[in-house]
Nucleic acid binder design. Structure first.
Length: 898
RNA sequence: GGGCGCGUAGCUCAGCGGGAGAGCACUACGUUGACAUCGUAGGGGUCGCUGGUUCAAUCCCAGCCGCGCCCACCA
């Protein structure tokens, strides 16, 4: 016998290993079944499960379990990501705690230390995924720094390099002065910052009494100015174009150039140009052949001697910088430089200024546009086929609107900076000869061979110290995990995948790049569908973050309410197009649902409703059974369609509604009198049917709530060692829902509802048994009443329910149901005024409905133009309302007469 | 500046051309042998505003107001 309540933790701990050991999660390369492949977005190997993962993984698991049971050879490919910056930062923080830096350990020592950390904490997230009930093919688990995947990374890098799609370039990058690495545009966050606009006066070189004023938010970069730009049509400055100013503090002559970039509306209309420290200025500098003067080191401190790149005309400014600022942090230097301008009376004024400042998303530090050599991917070239693939519908986004976001970014894509000045990651397979010649090969041996061919003799090579952006290896995930570039049957079988399930915040980081790499290397899109789910927020709609302290821990929810409750909550809330605001209360509600299901099963067990082998739903005779069987089939259709359309919330809603509001609230109550009644055949049929329906609920709910359904399925019947997880998805094709049974039971529901409502309104105690009389009933109604007499009496708490011809006793409460008028004789308790009021309210409602329909029908345009069936439907409804109204009015007349 | 999305019951949200829905919260009653993590009944909404299309608009279109997110830029 089942316990009185469900204990999720005990069941979950016991069930998961059973599934895993049974091989239920395994894909099967040799199967004849049609494959179904989902690539798990690899979480950070040293990370832990947050709510976003919980949603993402739940949806993938639901689909995987559903398709696997529907006969597909499902591969849900799991794995973890090395997450370069994030993981390296964690270990560096640990070292800092020991008073060390990574440089104390050296590269090899540090990388070994990170591997240790991975070994120590690397299992956390996969353990947590198991607690959630995730069912990927763990045998195939991969890590982005596995040898196989690293091989794929090297192969891709070398090939792209040899195709000219990867190149090295000296240009401005987003430099993170704290992490000491370049980061990509996507890793930069714009933060609104209160700052100042400093108006600096630059004297003309040949007329020191005249000044040109420039406005800047970053005065410290003036040390690297190589021009002042004005708009060519700006009359204020037209005569100055071509002249020089003498840059204060450094006494450098720099030209005044005409460039459209200068906006006459902004500041003074003249703008300082610092090509080595500003992206816009960099472009201006290129256009005018200006030299570039880098004045900062990797910590964003001012250099003593600038790094100078000569201008297009070969001009090479003096690299010496004022000693006063050497070694100062950029903000300290700013203060000093402003002070020095002020001291020389060259500071015109200071305005308060609200502007956005780029920050590194990992370090939170203001990034510095910095001139360095980095590796780039020619993203524009790779993007073209990826754009076409979505245009042509070879990959479809769900919801579709995300395609706009994808196109927008892809059509304006910038070169992708892929080198990082880190140690943890895939080291770039590039070696340099003594003269700086680069050899890009998959191994050092190959590089040496290439060098020998190049130089004609062996040469000492040094490897490029940089590693690749983590997303470079993630981009290969859909095929590198399948064994590519080695020959592997999995590549042919599971690529392209069916659906990628992910959150919209990584369309650019990941989805777009998988599309580019997949198309380039595999010649085909990596997945047919991209389902973008919402972000999970807290109950106030705020993004969850550590600093806000509003993180809801999915493991905590699993501990308190069970994995199924959390899964059901997330599935039920995964409506397309809106973020999810999660609260404990929601999860509690679905925990209650699990309890409800548990108790329904317990009831079945107590009443000996056991699954009957070979039970044939079409052979059921009882209307109540035929009704619930039809409802099972309707529910399955809704669930199947919902999954096919990625409408997870609809699948969850249909199952919730059916289980609670149909099966528990009505069917189990309806059948109680049958089970205890004298008709043994009816009881036997009902027991079998009840067990069958419960079985169907367990089947259909299983992908969403796998633990409790597995447990109950095993407890309710003799399963001979089978597990529900591996049972085929039920097929109801042979069963036709009986619509008559549906209509009839719906009538019974309405009848009981009416009696209950009248009883409640008339304050009839639940313990009081009263009689129900029906007058004016048609044959069909009389028939229905007689067929369901017992359950009506039982559920409406009556002594009897019968048809009468004679007038009903005075002092009856009355109600109208279709053709019949219901009488509840309540002579003792009835309050005539209250009853009159109740009936008048009812008439008022009916009059309102009738008036609305009359208005429509009175409109000749409606009758003419609306489809016939709509007009007919309105006429039917009117007739029904009118007939009910007449009967209620008669009832009211009786009360008033009485 | 460009793009996307959202304003429906107190709260959180489904629905999206012809009868306003759910869960939670609230009110009243209730332990009738599955379930109080429950049952029964009930109250509560000019579906943001203004126009337009249509026989018909919560639903489609436009504008406006409010809110959120993304991208770009701001000397």
């Amino acid at each position: 016998m089942l316990d009185k309540t469900y204990s999720p933790s005990e069941v979950e701990a016991r069930t998961y290993p059973t599934w895993e050991q049974s091989g239920a999660f395994a894909s099967n390369t040799t199967s004849n079944a049609q494959p179904f492949c989902v690539m798990m977005p690899p979480p950070n190997v040293t990370g832990s499960l947050h709510m976003g993962h919980a949603l993402n993984m739940t949806l993938q698991d639901v689909l995987t379990r559903y398709y696997r049971r529907s006969g597909r050879d499902a591969l849900w490919q799991p794995g973890t990501d090395h997450a370069g910056i994030a993981t390296q930062s964690v270990v560096e923080r640990q070292l800092a705690g020991e008073g060390k830096t990574r440089h104390d350990l050296g590269r090899d020592g540090f990388v070994a230390r990170v591997w240790d950390w991975k070994a120590e904490s690397g299992g956390t997230i996969t353990r947590q995924l198991r607690r959630l009930g995730a069912s990927p093919d763990w045998r195939r688990e991969r890590f982005t720094m596995d040898e196989g995947l690293s091989h794929a990374v090297r192969k891709v890098f070398v090939q792209l390099f040899k195709q000219g799609l990867i190149y090295k370039d000296k240009r401005l990058v987003n430099w993170d002065p704290r992490l000491h690495t370049a980061i990509s545009d996507l890793e930069v966050e714009q933060k609104e910052t209160k700052g100042h606009l400093w108006h600096l006066k630059y004297p003309l070189a040949d007329d020191p009494q005249r000044f040109i004023t420039v406005a800047t938010t970053r005065p410290e970069t003036m040390l690297g100015d190589t021009a002042v730009a004005v708009h060519p049509d700006d009359d204020r400055y037209r005569d100055l174009i071509g002249q020089d100013v003498l840059l204060p503090l450094v006494d450098r002559r720099i030209p005044i150039v005409a460039d459209d970039y200068a906006d006459p509306e902004q500041g003074s209309g003249a703008v300082k140009i610092t090509p080595a420290h500003d992206f816009n200025d960099f472009n201006v500098g290129k256009r005018h052949g200006l030299p570039m003067i880098n004045v900062m080191d990797r910590d964003a401190r001012i250099l003593a001697t600038a790094e100078v790149v000569p201008g297009g005309d070969g001009s090479e400014p003096d690299s010496a910088l004022p000693a006063a600022y050497a070694g100062l942090d950029r903000y300290e230097a700013r203060k000093r430089i402003i002070a020095d301008f002020a001291a020389q009376d060259l500071l015109e004024r200071i305005d308060d200024h609200l502007h956005t400042v780029p920050h590194g998303d990992r370090s939170g530090t203001a990034i510095e546009p910095w001139l360095t050599d980095q590796w780039y991917v020619d993203a524009e070239t790779l993007a073209q086929p990826a754009i076409r693939a979505v245009e042509e519908g070879r990959t479809v986004f769900v919801p579709r609107t995300w395609e706009n976001t994808y196109f927008e970014w892809m059509r304006n894509i910038e070169p992708w900076c892929i080198s990082r000045q880190l140690w943890w990651g895939h080291q770039i397979p590039a070696w340099y000869g003594p003269d700086g010649t680069v050899f890009v090969e998959q191994s050092e041996e190959e590089a040496q061979a290439a060098a020998k061919r190049h130089y004609g003799h062996d040469a000492a090579l040094t490897r490029d110290p940089d590693v690749l952006d983590t997303w470079f290896s993630s981009a290969l995930w859909p095929f590198s995990t399948l064994g590519w570039p080695d020959p592997a049957p999995e590549v042919d079988r599971y690529y392209p995948g069916d659906v990628l399930i992910t959150a919209h915040d990584i369309i650019f980081f990941w989805v777009a790049r998988m599309m580019m790499m997949g198309l380039h290397f595999m010649g085909e899109v990596p997945f047919r569908t991209v389902y973008m789910h919402a972000l999970v927020r807290d109950e106030k709609g705020q993004k969850m973050s550590k600093s806000k302290g509003n993180i809801i821990d999915p493991l905590g929810l699993i501990d308190r309410y069970g994995a199924d409750a959390l899964r059901m909550t997330l599935t039920a809330m995964a409506a397309q197009g809106r973020d999810i605001k999660l609260s404990d209360q929601r999860v509690e509600g679905y925990r209650n649902f699990a309890t409800k299901l548990w108790n329904a099963a317990r009831y079945c067990q107590m009443n000996d409703c056991r699954p009957v082998d070979g039970f044939d739903p079409t052979a059921c005779r009882l209307t109540v059974n035929r009704w619930i069987i039809g409802a099972v089939i309707d529910t399955a259709a809704k669930v199947e369609q919902a999954f096919a359309q990625y409408r997870f919330n609809e699948a969850a809603g249909a199952l919730y509604q059916f289980t609670w509001a149909q099966f528990c609230d009505w069917y189990l109550e309806f059948t109680k009198p049958i089970l205890t009644g004298s008709d043994d055949a009816a009881a036997a049929e009902t027991r079998a049917c009840t067990a069958w329906v419960l079985d169907q609920i367990l089947h259909q709910l299983n992908p969403i709530m796998p633990f409790v359904t597995e447990e109950l399925w095993g407890a309710i019947g003799d399963r001979q060692g089978d597990l529900l997880i591996s049972r085929p998805w039920p097929d109801y094709a042979a069963v036709d829902p009986d619509r008559h049974a549906g209509d009839e039971m719906e009538w019974v529901v309405r009848l009981i509802g009416m009696v209950r409502a009248v009883r409640a309104e008339m304050n009839v105690p639940a313990s009081a048994r009263i009689e129900l009389l029906l007058r004016g009933a048609s044959d069909r109604t009389a028939d229905r009443l007689s067929r369901h007499h017992d359950l009506i009496v039982h559920l409406a708490r009556l002594t009897d329910a019968r048809i009468i011809d004679a007038p009903a006793p005075k002092g009856s409460a009355q109600a109208v149901l279709d053709d019949a008028t219901l009488f509840l004789p309540l002579a003792e308790v009835i309050d005539l005024d209250q009853e009159r009021e109740r009936l008048e309210r009812e008439i008022g409602k009916l009059d309102g409905e009738i008036a609305k329909i009359d208005k429509k029908l009175a409109n000749p345009q409606f009758v003419e133009k609306a489809p016939e069936e709509v007009v007919a439907e309105q006429r039917d409804r009117r007739a029904d309302y009118l007939s009910t109204r007449e009967k209620v009015a008669a009832a009211l007349a009786r009360v008033s007469a009485g």
